[in-house]
């Protein structure tokens, strides 16, 4: 099964992945009714990446996320109820309804924010890693970014800086094959994003992002190396997004049946279930029970989000500065 995860750990990982999936599918459904405002980018299909990485992290480790941030948030321990309210623009949201889907953040659990600026997180994670290094803790910083973002100057600069300063930073390139409607086959001229790692003098690792166990293992090694002073790693996770770039995207650039085939053959939740139930240590019934609990949680989060108040007008002018 897994070398490092006991039964409890496996059930936890499953619960996180299932929570992300349920959350995203629910947002997808509700967005279609026109009730959810703004731009929403869903993480469904990519759950094994956020979960496989974040299972190794403590509350003192930081992550920086992307516009497709819901999965990273949930995996890092942000409360899904507050997240749902945030997406609905409510005062009870994680960011009081001021940030929305693209800006969910919870610094109290080491979640430095989803990000509306592609590549925005790389330098920030160098900073959290630098702080950990200077303070002499064993904490790490993880920057999640996409194949599209891998071409952004900030990401190149951040990887170089992390290598130069030997920072406890992990760069997780989530290669889902597309940046908006552009294939990574076009925008990334080398074969793999991880091929760029040696140019920065850091290890580059490629992992199957549908396989939780593969991600968990590879991330564990990179994070351990970083905690022990071994410097940064570039981890490329190959995966796919199940929905459009954003909700409303017609996805005519994709091959017909592309997503359906992946869902049927490689889905991370399906593979996980098959693997952990194979030796009988975990039963289908246990996993089904988690499915039910997660569904209740997400249903409840939507009921609450709908009923919650919008931010009061006075909120428009607050929170710009600490003092002014």
């Amino acid at each position: 099964m897994s070398e490092t995860l006991n039964r409890e750990g496996l059930l936890k990982a499953y619960r996180i992945m299932r929570t992300i999936r349920e959350f995203e599918e629910r947002v997808h459904t509700d967005f279609a009714t026109g009730e959810i405002p703004g731009f929403v980018h869903l993480y469904a299909g990519e759950e094994a990446s956020a979960t496989g990485v974040c299972m190794h992290l403590t509350g003192a480790d930081y992550i920086a996320s992307t516009h497709r941030g819901h999965g990273h948030c949930i995996a890092k321990g942000v409360d899904p109820v507050g997240m749902m309210a945030e997406i609905w623009g409510k005062a009870t949201g994680t960011c009081k309804g001021k940030g929305g889907s693209m800006h969910i953040a919870d610094l109290s659990v080491g979640m430095l924010g989803a990000n509306g600026i592609v590549g925005g997180g790389g330098p920030l994670i160098c900073g959290t890693a630098l702080a950990a290094k200077i303070r002499g803790t064993k904490d790490v910083g993880v920057c999640f970014f996409g194949d599209g973002a891998s071409n952004q100057g900030t990401i190149f600069e951040a990887m170089n800086l992390a290598a130069v300063w030997k920072l406890p930073a992990i760069f997780v390139a989530e290669n889902n094959g597309y940046a908006e409607a552009t294939s990574s086959k076009y925008s990334v001229p080398c074969e793999h994003i991880a091929d760029r790692a040696p140019a920065f003098g850091m290890p580059g690792v490629i992992v199957d992002g549908f396989d939780f166990f593969a991600v968990h293992k590879a991330a564990g090694e990179a994070i351990k190396r970083a905690r022990e002073g071994g410097g940064p790693t570039l981890l490329e996770v190959k995966l796919s997004r199940y929905y459009g770039h954003f909700e409303g995207d017609q996805q005519t650039y994709r091959a017909p049946g592309e997503v359906q085939t992946l869902r049927e053959t490689k889905d991370c939740l399906m593979q996980f279930r098959r693997r952990v139930t194979a030796d009988g240590e975990i039963t289908d019934a246990q996993l089904d029970a988690i499915d039910g609990e997660v569904k209740t949680l997400i249903d409840d989060s939507v009921v609450r989000a709908k009923a919650d108040p919008k931010p009061a007008p006075a909120e428009l002018l607050t929170d710009v500065y600490v003092s002014y």
Binding site: A179, E180, T182, Y253
Partner: peptide, 12 residues
Amino acid sequence: EDNAGGAGAPGE
């Protein structure tokens, strides 16, 4: 970015 869209992709 995506002034056309679909570059390198299997679809349209």
